[in-house]
Amino acid sequence: MNRRINFMGYRLSGSKCLGICLMLTFVMGCYLAALPIRYEKEALPNPVRQRITSQETPKKRLAVLVPFRDRFEELLEFVPHMYSFLNRQKIPFHIFIVQQKDNNRFNRASLINVGFIYSKKDYDYIAMHDVDLLPLNDNLKYDYPAAGPMHISSPKTHPKYHYDTFIGGILLVTREQYELVNGMSNNYWGWGLEDDEFYVRLKDAKLTVMRPSNISTGIDNTFRHVHDKTYRKRDMRKCYNQREVTRRRDRETGVHDVSYKLHNTHTVAVDGLNVTVLNVELICDKNRTPWCQCPEPVKAAKKT
């Protein structure tokens, strides 16, 4: 049965109506396709930066503190040697040359105190390091000494000093360990004994000094000792009551009261390797330690 539909006043059959609808649909589709289309910009989420986490704990940073005065030939050997040695161990480190710039006698301990104060903000542990002692054995590890201060230059391998309580030469100490014992005594002007007093401080604080193990080398080939004692004589003079005072444990002075002026700092390149030089004036309290300036010994007149 062919139905008729009234469309806009016309009576159309069903088949014609279907044809018109299809035509209209086609025309509308073409019209819409020709229109410009505007897209609403969607709010994009903030970019997410993927965090890459390492399974390894970042290594602690080492400040190599070198008390120094007028030993440039030794420094020229020390810097490239230590860069090569510590880079092989992949130790994050920086070398600080703490140079004494005053007329007082050399004070190794106070210079280390100053170097510690300067570096402690950015470094986790220090190496108290003589400039004339170069490690040769790669099994001497300069790692963070969490278990206790690490004496690298053990009496069994140091070229000169072999007594059991010796901790001079090269000693690694964490920031917390150094602060616990109030650093080093400031009473030691001239050569010697400041490291022996520091050993007593560590012992009183119940800190056990560790030493390298499984070292197959000995006193002749573990270190290179570049000090020439005929060219650079040790200042071993004793004057006033120095001998009496420095034989006792110092319970008063330390890193908290070291008296000094930091005149300036410089970045210096040795063979293209950067170190930081601290130019330090140590201030002597002559009422406490008059031996910071010992009078030169009077030479006996020759008999004629």
Rank of each mutant, 00 (worst) to 15 (best):
R251I: 09
R69Y: 09
L12N: 05
Y83V: 14
G169T: 05
P58V: 00
P80L: 05
T53E: 06
S154Q: 02
F85S: 14
K303T: 15
L76A: 14
N2A: 12
K233M: 06
L18D: 12
D124Y: 05
Y240P: 05
T246I: 15
D143K: 10
V245R: 10
R251D: 10
Y10H: 14
D271T: 13
V181P: 02
R105A: 15
D143P: 00
H256T: 15
M28Q: 04
L62Y: 07
T217Q: 04
D235M: 04
H227V: 09
D285F: 06
A147Q: 09
Q242G: 12
W189F: 15
R88W: 04
Y161G: 01
H266W: 03
T304C: 05
D271I: 07
C30P: 00
D228F: 06
A146I: 07
A146K: 09
L136C: 09
S154A: 11
H158A: 04
F26Q: 09
K286P: 03
R175C: 08
L22Y: 07
T25E: 02
I95F: 13
W189T: 14
A300S: 13
N187E: 01
P58I: 00
Q89L: 10
G19M: 10
L262S: 11
H162V: 02
N186W: 01
L273C: 11
L171D: 03
Y31I: 13
N241D: 12
L133D: 00
Y83F: 15
D124M: 04
K141W: 00
K90D: 13
R211D: 00
Y260P: 03
G218T: 08
A109K: 02
E197L: 06
G115F: 02
D220G: 13
I215S: 08
E77Q: 15
D138E: 15
V114H: 04
Y123G: 13
L134K: 11
N182Y: 02
K160F: 06
D164K: 09
D228A: 08
F68Q: 03
K121P: 03
R248S: 14
L202R: 06
N274F: 07
